[in-house]
Each structure stands twice: as C-alpha cells, then as structure tokens.
C-alpha cells in the first residue's frame, strides 16, 4: 500500500425540501434531510473498503457525493492529491475517467434503446480515448470478453441479456476508461445467489488485473466480510465504527454493529444463536434523534446518550467507534445490564 488514494474529510450532504408559498410568507424554514453527516474516511490504494448499513442510512448518497454525482453540501474529497470538490464541472467530468461507479440495478442503469457497443463505448467517446469508430468497437469487444461476455454480443440491446449479464455490461462500462477507483454500489444485491458469486469473483479478478481500488457499498455483511479489507458501518448518515474487517466482524465495539452482526441468519449455525432483537424501526432522517442517533434502538443507552453525540475513539489498530460506553466492555449480547 502506498498511502491513501482517496481522502474524505467532513463530507455532508443535505437535501432541502421545497417550500410552499405560504410557508415562505410565514418565514418557515424548509425541511432538510441530512443524508450524510460529517463523514471522514480514507481509502488506501489497492484496497477494498466495505461500507455497510441498512436502507436509508446514507451509504449510496455517500458514494455518489464522493463522485460528485450528488454535489456535497460540505466537506472535501481528495483523490490522488487533487481536491475534487474544488474542480470545475468540466475538470470533474475529465476526472471521472479515473473515478467510476457500478450501480445496483442492472435493469434501470442501462439505456434500453442503446446497443452494448454504444453503452460501453460512451466513456471512450466522452474522454476521447478511441480514435475512430472501428478502434472503439474493438476496445469495447475486448472489454466484453474481459467481463465474461462474448464479443459477438456487441450489437445487442440490454433486454436481450439476463440480470447477471447486464451487471457485466455495467462493469464493462465502468472499467473501459481504465479508472483507478470504482464505487461499487450494491452491485450484487439484485442478483440470485449463484449469479452473485460469479459477479463477486469477476470483480475480484478485475481488481487484480486493472489494479483497482473499490469502495464497496452493501447491506450484506457476508459479502463485505468475504471481500473487503476494511469496513465502515453507517447509521443514519454517520459512520459509527470502522476498522480492519476481521477486527470489526469478530470484535464489533459499537452496539449497532453488534446487533447488525447478530441479526444475520447464518447457514453454519443450525441451532438458533442468541439473537439481540433491536426494537423499533430506523428513525426518520427528517427528524433524527438527539445525542447519539442510535439511542432510540440501543439496549445499552443511558442518560448521556440522549444528550450528547459521541465522538469516534480508537479502540484498536486502525479500528475506531463512536459510543459513550465503549470503555465499559459491554456487549449487547449479555443483555446490557452486566457492567
């Protein structure tokens, strides 16, 4: 590893709701959702950082804010020494040759009216990477073979492919400009188990071949545990814990990480494991809880958790977590009362 390829500092993304005329006249404040709140993280060159969290926690928004597909509200993203948040739109477009994304939904993310040659070839045109139509077709055909499709399928339309094959098309499109960094936004979540395994294998092979760095967003802890080097856990727009994947999965320190891990049904354990049942639903991000945002569902919450937000503290090598009760050595699996 040769240092951080990507540095995210204090990144926030707030969506502001539209105001009615009456609301404006009455001087009301518009509703605002803070989807990503003051997130900082580093991604080393050549590593896979896994980002886990449940729906609505802001993990996809974070991925898109890093690429400025959604403009960040605050904070800075430095990519290979360049502050990308300060780039002009034209310079940002050029930078996207090196920063790409693979989307979750292989159905919605491909234009149904374009052939594979057009879809996968577009980045080449945008970045002026192909000299002439014939050369472009040839590059696309090579890329198709690399992602496990046939060069002969180049003139087909997306609907002529299965879900797994479409995801391969999305991967070809992301990699054809030879990027350094790819945001994989739930790339296998919409696929069946056996197809999912094929795509995971492919992403690993391509990472080696093209020396890629991934931000791998997923709600599936098994996938992250298998694939990632480090992992960051998000809850309601904040990173509550991050560290090396072995450490976080075997010794999770934040009660949210602990409950997330214990909720995953495991194939190995036929006997029912002692599960911690989180009560209640994810609070609305429109009206997030005070203090620690997890306190409304946390079995360990005490008074201070309702009043003040905890800061991230180091708990091991490269491992940190944000919880007021970190140093009491508690685990929610012992019911939380033992201290």
């Amino acid at each position: 590893m040769t240092g951080a390829l990507l540095q995210v500092e204090g990144l926030s993304k707030t969506y502001v709701g539209r105001m009615s005329l009456v609301g404006r006249l009455l001087g009301r404040r518009p509703t605002a959702v803070r989807a990503v709140s003051d997130v900082s993280l580093d991604i080393e060159r050549g590593e896979i950082l896994g980002l886990i969290g449940e729906s609505g926690c802001g993990k996809s928004t974070l991925g898109r804010a890093i690429l400025r597909l959604h403009e960040p509200s605050a904070g800075r993203v430095t990519f290979d020494g360049t502050d990308v948040t300060a780039l002009s739109p034209a310079a940002m477009t050029a930078m996207r040759r090196r920063m790409q994304i693979i989307f979750q939904d292989p159905y919605a993310s491909l234009n149904p009216r374009r052939t594979v040659a057009d879809i996968v070839g577009l980045p080449l045109q945008l970045h002026g990477l192909a000299s002439g139509r014939a050369a472009q077709r040839e590059t696309v055909a090579e890329m198709l073979e690399k992602v496990g499709l046939k060069a002969g399928q180049i003139d087909r339309y997306p609907h002529q492919f299965s879900g797994g094959q479409r995801q391969r098309i999305g991967i070809a499109r992301a990699l054809i400009s030879r990027p350094d960094f790819v945001v994989c936004d739930e790339p296998v979540s919409a696929l069946d188990v056996s197809i999912q395994a094929q795509i995971i294998q492919l992403l690993q092979d391509l990472k080696r071949e093209f020396a890629l760095t991934y931000l791998f967003i997923s709600h599936d802890i098994s996938v992250i545990g298998y694939l990632a080097d480090r992992v960051a856990v998000m809850y309601l727009g904040e990173i509550v814990e991050q560290g090396p994947v072995e450490a976080v999965l075997s010794r999770p320190r934040h009660p949210y990480t602990q409950s997330l891990l214990s909720a995953v049904p495991k194939v190995e354990a036929t006997a029912r494991t002692d599960r911690v049942r989180l009560t209640g639903d994810l609070p609305s991000p429109l009206n997030p809880p005070s203090g620690c945002k997890f306190h409304t569902r946390c079995p360990l919450a005490i008074d201070i958790c309702r009043r003040s937000a905890p800061h991230r503290e180091t708990v091991g090598q490269g491992h940190d977590a944000a919880c007021h009760r970190l140093h009491e050595g508690l685990s929610i699996t012992d019911g939380g009362s033992a201290a």
Binding site: G164, A197, Q198, I200, Q201, Y226, L227, V267
Partner: peptide
Amino acid sequence: RGLLASIPRPALRGQPIRPIEGQV
C-alpha cells in the same frame, strides 16, 4: 452444493468462491 458454495462467507476470505457456472 453449488448454492452453498456460492454464498460468500467471511470465513472464506482470500479463497476463491466457486460459483455455479452459466445460468438457469
């Protein structure tokens, strides 16, 4: 067997998973 081998598991880190080739 193929289905079970396709499930990515943290215990299998670093080893290749063996997906079922092809499709339904």
